[in-house]
Each structure stands twice: as C-alpha cells, then as structure tokens.
Amino acid sequence: MKKCVITVVGKDTVGIIAKVCTYLAETGINILDISQTIIDDFFNMIMIVDVDGASKEFQEYTAELEALGGEIGVSIHCQREEIFEKMHRL
C-alpha cells in the first residue's frame, strides 16, 4: 500500500473538507485516517491516504490539490509517507 500525508491549512470557510474529499474520491484516493481542528478561525487538517487506486500520477494529483487549495483559500500539501517519516525522524 502506497500512502501519502496530506495537510490542509488556512482560514476556515464552509466546504473545505467536502471539496478536498470530493477531489480525492473522484481521483480514486482512499482516506485511511483524518484529523481536523479549528484554532482561532484557522482550519487545520491532516489526512493519511492510500494512493494505490489513484487514477493519476503523484505529480499530477499533487499539483491539482495545490491548485484546489488556491481556489478555496487554503494551502494543501501532499507528501509521500516515506519522505514525511524521514523528515520527522529527528
């Protein structure tokens, strides 16, 4: 199973989770775990996703997620799990 870590951060507005989850479902990316919170009107979400069934390549869905973030006013970042783990292993 290939996993990625997706983070979403920005000013809270209606529909952030719906738009991100809709994109993931349409792309064949399965959400394995999700955590979200709002701190002082700032939306924070982290997701662990399985990308084995993705209908697009990593670079394509990563770029599309970043573009979606721009459209809805948040920052969306996607990293492969192995890179995320190595960066945070210190």
Rank of each mutant, 00 (worst) to 15 (best):
M1H: 14
K3F: 11
K3A: 11
C4M: 08
I6L: 13
V9R: 10
V9M: 06
V9H: 06
V9P: 11
K11S: 08
K11I: 10
K11G: 01
V14M: 09
G15W: 05
I17V: 15
I17F: 08
A18E: 14
K19L: 01
V20E: 00
C21S: 15
T22C: 02
Y23S: 09
L24N: 12
L24D: 14
L24A: 11
A25S: 14
G28W: 01
N30P: 05
I31P: 05
I34D: 04
I34N: 05
I38P: 07
I39P: 01
D40P: 00
D41E: 14
F43G: 13
N44G: 04
I46S: 00
M47H: 02
M47I: 11
M47C: 07
V49Y: 00
V51R: 01
S55K: 09
S55Y: 01
E57F: 05
Q59N: 07
Q59C: 06
T62Q: 09
A63G: 11
A63E: 12
E64H: 12
L65H: 00
L65E: 04
E66C: 06
E66V: 07
E71M: 10
S75L: 07
S75H: 11
H77R: 11
C78E: 15
R80E: 14
E82A: 03
I83N: 04
I83T: 13
I83V: 13
I83E: 06
I83Y: 06
F84W: 14
K86V: 03
M87N: 06
M87H: 02
M87G: 07
H88M: 03
R89T: 15
L90S: 09
